[in-house]
């Protein structure tokens, strides 16, 4: 019975996931991510590099408004390091005793500030295309990490006969192949503190790992508890099966 359900659930997964992937327009590269799978966890070093890429490259156009600095301890930072990271940003606060607004350095309880005050300003500054907030981008796109990675590394020469409209860029992964975002990553766009060579692929991987964490910060806790629950239930099923056999042995059925 259990086996039947497991197989059913898994095969259902395979059957429905496959056409869903194929229905998107662009070419999606498939990668193995450290957070994939039942035991997958985030790669802390990569998350920290990804934060650096976000801060130095993406943050000029994309917000990350659902992520609080305090949660950066998940990346392996100490609270003191988190305070330093937060303090690099300025926030308007107030009103003070005189009723005036004032600016103060960020604190762990603050959230990443968005680059534009509102959607209209974001559209105006970017030729009409609003750069989406990245807090949930990995969960909000079919293909998740693979999709975001493929977009970041999908900038190519347009094939012959393909005209890219004004203000657009050819991207092999984007549905329709024309994306408003200019290529964000270039070789050595950042200098990694840990000495990792900053290739486009490396930076894309790191920032995608970071955004995956940003979208699902409770993933590790979820899998950890899940493992305990599954082991518990398997034993419970065994015990209940024993009772069931015992009880029904007395019935002619």
């Amino acid at each position: 019975m259990r086996k039947f359900f497991l197989t059913a659930a898994l095969s259902l997964g395979v059957v429905t996931a496959a056409p869903a992937m194929a229905s998107e327009g662009g070419h999606i590269k498939r990668l193995d991510w450290p957070q994939d799978g039942i035991f997958g966890t985030y790669d802390r070093a990569s998350l920290q590099r990804g934060l650096q890429v976000y801060q130095q490259v993406c943050a000029s156009c994309h917000g990350l408004k659902r992520v609080a600095f305090r949660t950066l301890t998940d990346l392996g930072f100490t609270m003191d390091q988190v305070k330093k990271i937060a303090a690099e940003y300025e926030f308007e606060d107030g009103p003070d005793e005189e009723g005036e607004m004032f600016t103060r350095p960020g604190a762990p309880y603050d959230y990443f500030p968005s680059p534009f005050p509102n959607e209209k300003a974001a559209a105006a500054a970017n030729g009409g295309a609003v750069p989406p907030d990245l807090s949930l981008i990995v969960k909000a796109r079919r293909g998740r990490e693979d999709y975001v990675y493929s977009i970041l590394t999908g900038y190519e020469e347009a094939p012959d006969g393909f005209t890219v409209p004004e203000g657009g860029h050819y991207n092999s992964a984007f549905p329709g192949n024309v994306i408003a975002m200019p290529p964000p990553l270039s070789e050595d766009a950042v200098e990694y503190a840990d000495g990792t060579p900053a290739t486009v692929e490396q930076m894309a991987k790191d920032v995608v790992n970071f955004l995956s964490w940003a979208a699902e910060p409770k993933m590790e806790e979820r899998k950890r508890i899940g493992l305990r629950v599954v082991i518990f239930l398997v034993i419970l099923i065994g015990l209940l099966y024993g009772i069931y056999r015992r009880v029904w042995a007395r019935v002619d059925h």
Binding site: I235, G242, R246
Partner: peptide, 11 residues
């Protein structure tokens, strides 16, 4: 059955 029932109930 009692042993099994008690073990299962406790678990």
């Amino acid at each position: 059955r009692d042993f099994l029932t008690i073990a299962t109930t406790a678990f």
